[in-house]
Simulated scan of single mutants.
Amino acid sequence: MGKKRVVVSSSETTAVVVEQLRGWEGLNPEILALIFVRIPADAMVRGVPFVCKPWMEVVAGPYCWHDIDVEAWCRRRDVSRAVDVDFVVKKLVRRSKFTVQRLSAYRLGESGFFLVSICGRSLKVLQSPMSSITDYMVIKHIKPLPNLKLLDISHCYKITHKGIAAFGNHCKSLIHLKRRMPPLLDEDCSPIDDSEAKTIATTMVSLQRIELCFGRFGDMGISEIVTKCKSLTHLDIEGSCNVELNYGDLKEICESLEHFRCPQIDYSDGFFDNDEASEDVDSVSSIYD
């Protein structure tokens, strides 16, 4: 049998390539979203929607916004006004149709916090360091967030033990609290204020990981935490100059934890090195999925 030679014109080749490209358009929106979310949020908004109409519809829909991370954008833009952050956060939360599972944003304000707080059962991780949220805002706007597992309110100067109590009373599934504050000056180390530590111990008893760097609390406050938070495995109180670990058997209890960092321990020997800390973060982050 003789061989038959087929010649394909350039126009036909182009048609085949175009047809293959159209396969992307026909993909399920959820599958496309899994690809798009690997792109930084601001880059995705600026570039992806202009490729084709189906891609624009995917980015405008809820599937790309279950995880909202604008932390890098906040850093790069040096956004100093909460209203700018709130505008972006509100827009993306609405796109998600209030199905956000994780939000990470600096300098969150009242209107942004309000919209995030009504995400309800879907929200698992809320990271809003350096926000302007006050106790009054938290008490006024916080709704039950039964599945929230990680809360980061580091460098939130306007939140006190009253706001922490409101979070604790509405977020019963919390297992990780970040409450890192800026380093204290020597004259700021007194008087001791155990109010936040005692509130955490009373309202967040299920916590497994607690980061309270540079807090004003003393031995009594830490004793309340390690006594009442029965599931605690990680405690970081580095820079908390009022802690002396001289209260009863507090030192022994703290050192029996899986990981413990405090002002009295020298970390130069690799007690809590970065590799080990990174592994811990990776292992715990899987719990939030």
Rank of each mutant, 00 (worst) to 15 (best):
I164D: 05
F87C: 09
K162A: 09
S96A: 03
H141Y: 00
P182I: 11
V83I: 13
S173Y: 12
L123P: 11
M137H: 09
S173Q: 09
L145P: 03
V89N: 00
D86V: 10
C74E: 07
K90R: 13
F114W: 00
R81L: 07
M130V: 00
A72I: 06
H66R: 14
R179S: 10
W65M: 04
R180C: 05
D193V: 04
I164N: 03
L115H: 10
I118S: 07
D135F: 08
D152F: 08
E196T: 14
K178W: 06
K178I: 05
L150F: 01
D194S: 08
G120F: 04
G163M: 11
G168L: 03
P62Y: 09
H161Q: 14
D188L: 15
T160I: 13
W65G: 03
Y63F: 14
V93L: 07
I153T: 11
V116M: 13
L184P: 00
R180V: 04
S128L: 12
L115W: 11
G109D: 02
R180K: 12
A72K: 12
A82T: 10
A105E: 02
V70D: 04
V93K: 01
A166V: 09
H176M: 09
G168A: 08
L185Y: 06
R75F: 11
Y106T: 08
R180A: 03
N147S: 13
R121A: 04
S132Y: 05
L174M: 08
V89G: 02
D194Y: 01
E71I: 13
R102P: 07
H170Q: 01
V88R: 02
